[in-house]
């Protein structure tokens, strides 16, 4: 069981900066994110793009902003549960909340800050009929444990780095591997593209381009996929696994069922302190909505700052909070 003062769901810029503002008030934080790395949209969608509207930075690359935020909060020693999605929430008898992830990791805290952005980044699932019936029965949207593919027949589809890298990696391990891609060109790293072409030439893999997987079938588990060539030809291929790798997209997911008031997929908050309809649960950054809301990084920072003041008062009802500038007090780390 992980215990902390503020449990932050989402390690995007808003969640990360919350650690700083909480740290100034000597509150400890722990972050959960479905992605394996912090940074939210900035690292997942546009790490190399310059941002021009962060106060004090005429221009900063999204990836660098996240790096800076990580450096800024390091002194407060936040904990991270990465690669896991916050799934359920429960209010305990002592008034604290218990949040459990899809992998069963439990977290307990008196304050929950939902900084979930556009939602949890999840693999994109192709709109193929019946595909959900074969999930975990041959259809896998990511490779967690490569060993499970040893000596198996595998069909991978996609044209980016993960499709190329896993094709290369699994080529040695699998019995047979087929990579299906919609066009001849690939967007992945040139080295990987070269390597895949070499493996194809050496008949270590089957490369089927200008084609896509359009059907999945099997008795109880996956047995076959149908591949449609752009010229209309159909190829039926026996396989044990189908791994579609089409990148990630954000989905609100389980938070939608937490009893919070929603409006158009966003959580309604009171702009006094960004608290939701459930006392002790706050929503900050892109995930919340209120009259005049703008989905901007700088607005998320502001919301996080005000939220921490209320969080402090809930955690320390008897203490008075006196407001101090960082220039006056400097910053003192938190003992771990």
């Amino acid at each position: 069981m992980i215990e902390t003062d503020i449990l932050i769901i989402g390690a995007g810029p808003t969640g990360l900066f919350t650690v700083f503002e909480a740290g100034l008030l000597k509150l400890k934080c722990h972050l959960i994110d479905a992605l394996p790395q912090p940074g939210g949209q900035l690292t997942e969608i546009y790490p190399k793009k310059p941002i021009y509207d962060i106060p004090g930075f005429p221009e900063v690359l999204a990836g660098d902003l996240v790096k800076n935020l990580m450096e800024q909060i390091e002194i407060f020693k936040p904990g991270f549960t990465l690669g896991e999605r916050a799934e359920t929430i429960e209010k305990l008898e002592d008034g604290k909340f218990l949040v459990t992830t899809n992998r069963g990791t439990k977290h307990k805290a008196p304050i929950i800050a939902i900084a979930g952005g556009l939602g949890s980044f999840e693999p994109r699932k192709p709109p193929i009929e019946n595909i959900s019936a074969f999930e975990e029965r041959g259809v896998e949207y990511m490779v967690r444990d490569p060993e499970m593919f040893a000596e198996k027949k595998i069909v991978i589809s996609g044209g980016g780095d993960s499709a190329l890298d896993w094709t290369i990696y699994l080529a040695d391990l699998a019995d047979e591997i087929t990579l299906v891609h919609r066009r001849q060109g690939f967007r992945g790293a040139p080295d990987s593209v070269q390597k895949v072409k070499e493996l194809d030439a050496a008949e270590k893999i089957n490369l089927i381009t200008e084609a896509q997987v359009t059907g999945v079938s099997g008795e109880t588990a996956l047995e076959q996929v149908v591949i449609r060539k752009n010229n209309g030809d159909l190829i039926e291929k026996k396989t044990d696994f189908f791994i579609p790798l089409f990148g990630l997209s954000p989905k609100l997911g389980p938070i939608a069922n937490w009893g919070l008031h929603l409006e158009k997929n966003a959580i309604l908050v009171d702009t006094f302190d960004y608290q939701t309809n459930i006392p002790g649960i706050f929503a900050i950054g892109d995930i919340n909505t209120y009259p005049g809301k703008l989905k901007l990084i700088l607005c998320g920072f502001h919301e996080a700052t005000l939220m921490c003041q209320s969080a402090y008062k809930i955690i320390n009802p008897e203490k008075k909070l006196s407001f101090k500038y960082t220039t006056v007090t400097g910053i003192k780390g938190i003992e771990s």
Partner: peptide, 13 residues
């Protein structure tokens, strides 16, 4: 744009 279409489904001419 072509690179991003790689992440879409049912991509046609």
């Amino acid at each position: 744009e072509e690179d991003m279409l790689d992440q879409a489904f049912d991509v046609l001419e």
